[in-house]
Design a protein around this nucleic acid. Structure first.
Length: 451
DNA sequence: GAGTTTGAAACT
DNA sequence: CAGTTTCAAACTC
């Protein structure tokens, strides 16, 4: 059984590697888009001729680029972050099935198999994409079309293709994807972060329902100026809201040197209990952390209070593992105790943030628990079939100050007087130490049980 | 589809 | 920095 698990894990790692490779390709494509600013300008010019000025019409005519398959990433300031932001929310690599059906696979092997199936599916889709890219490039060359780089466009198309399977309800209703957020702004002129398109760094398109839209190439100067202004207030305003690193789940559990994912600055929910999409953490598919100021947090991806550890473990706990659970509880208490000691030592107010959020496991198909804590059908009760708008195995593009290895830290001082907007959880290293202790004890307990 | 709720963003 | 207002998405009916 151990050998089978080991082999499966190796396969999963290979698949994971492939996925990360795919991710790298995607990032390169964004880079291509960036380097292709000249093309962008041409596109903007083309769209200006095609689109009408919005000043006369309340409903702006949104430009379409090329085949209309791609939103236009804004050039210049923060483009890279825009790419991340957009992709973080838009891109889904792995086709995900509703949790209820997934959780029917009671064993880790089942989950890994499922994961590999998804990876195979992605490989097939990628192969299909490569063909499309070649065709499209040939076509563009033939027609002299100066459009977004074909690879970039098709990549987005691929993302959208997968995306369409799990689009948010609003987008589904609107029947449009095109990578556009389909905003519905009425007063902000799509020049504020309220606007999802603007916040994602993409221009609005015809599929948006916004009024008096300025987030179009025709108003590029205005858009850039506004972005600059917003960035001066908050340098991370256009950064992805959910910060992920590229480690696999197994790696994270083996060596949790970094938190797997978290919201950039944490939520502030008061009534939603962090179980609705009003909550940015929940929407991003990550658990709440100590950085959140939420009240009555019930985030199923990880609550901000210290109970989150037990929540996650319980969801995967088979009935027969009571003994192990007891052990875990003891170790958690022990960890918390040591945590407290560390806290005293460090003279810092530190709490125990959440474990890697459950959806991280859901996305990858690998249980978010150590291999010796098997997945249980009880996890069926976990959550609805909502799938968060996030991308897997996101490269950790955080500035050093946002990474866990800058410790301890008190937060980022921003130009904004409102420091609430950029706040960083403190002293995650204490949590990492605690988690190592728990993992260690789980391993030893498992060995004892096996004997 | 209209109205309500919610919390982030923006403002004071 | 805290409180308030504005805004648009999410949600409900």
């Amino acid at each position: 059984m151990d050998d089978r698990l080991r082999n499966s894990s190796l396969l999963a790692c290979e698949a994971d590697s492939h996925q990360q490779h795919s991710m790298r390709r995607r990032c390169l494509l964004f880079e291509m888009a960036e380097s292709d600013k000249e093309n962008f300008d041409n596109r903007a010019a083309v769209s200006q001729t095609n689109g009408k000025s919005n000043t006369n019409d309340m409903k702006s005519v949104k430009p379409k680029f090329g085949n209309g398959s791609t939103p236009c990433m804004l050039p210049g300031i923060g483009l890279h972050l825009n790419a991340l932001g957009a992709s973080a929310k838009d891109c889904k690599i792995v086709k995900r099935e509703p949790l209820a059906s997934r959780s029917q696979s009671a064993t880790m092997l089942g989950s890994i198999t499922s994961y590999l199936d998804h990876s195979r599916e992605e490989v097939l889709l990628r192969e299909d994409l490569d063909k499309k890219i070649t065709k499209s490039e040939m076509c563009d060359a033939k027609n002299g079309v100066q459009d977004a780089p074909a690879a970039f466009r098709i990549s987005e198309e691929f993302n959208q293709g997968n995306l369409k399977k799990k689009k948010s309800s609003r987008v589904e209703q609107d029947g449009d994807s095109e990578g556009c957020k389909n905003c519905n702004c009425k007063k902000s002129k799509c020049l504020k972060l309220y606007c999802e398109c603007f916040a994602a760094g993409i221009y609005c398109t015809e599929s948006c329902s916004c009024l008096e839209c300025y987030n179009i190439p025709a108003h590029e100067d205005t858009v850039l100026a506004t972005r600059k202004q917003i960035l001066s207030r908050n340098p991370l305003a256009f950064a992805p809201k959910v910060i992920r690193n590229s480690k696999s789940v197994a790696e994270i559990w083996e060596e949790p040197s970094e938190i797997s994912a978290r919201h950039k600055k944490g939520c502030n929910c008061k009534k939603s209990g962090c179980i609705k999409r009003y909550c940015e953490c929940y929407q991003g598919g990550v658990g709440c952390t100590i950085g959140c100021k939420c009240q009555g947090c019930q985030n199923t991806f990880g609550r901000k209070d210290s109970e989150c550890l037990m929540v996650v473990l319980k969801l995967h706990k088979p009935e027969a593992e009571e003994k192990t659970e007891t052990c875990i509880k003891e170790k958690v208490d022990e960890s918390l105790s040591k945590n407290k000691e560390l806290k005293d030592e460090e003279q810092a107010s530190v709490h125990l943030p959440c474990l890697p959020p459950l959806p991280f496991a859901i996305h990858s198909g690998i249980p978010c628990v150590p291999s010796n804590v098997a997945q249980s059908p009880t996890s069926q009760t976990l959550e609805s079939d909502f799938v968060p708008d996030i991308m897997l195995h996101f490269q950790d593009e955080r500035p050093e100050v946002l990474k866990g290895n800058c410790l301890p830290m008190a937060g980022v001082k921003t130009a904004s007087p409102n420091s609430k907007r950029v706040r960083v959880p403190q002293n995650e290293f204490v949590f990492q130490k605690s988690r190592k202790l728990v993992l260690k004890s789980i391993s030893s307990q498992s060995r004892n049980n096996a004997q």
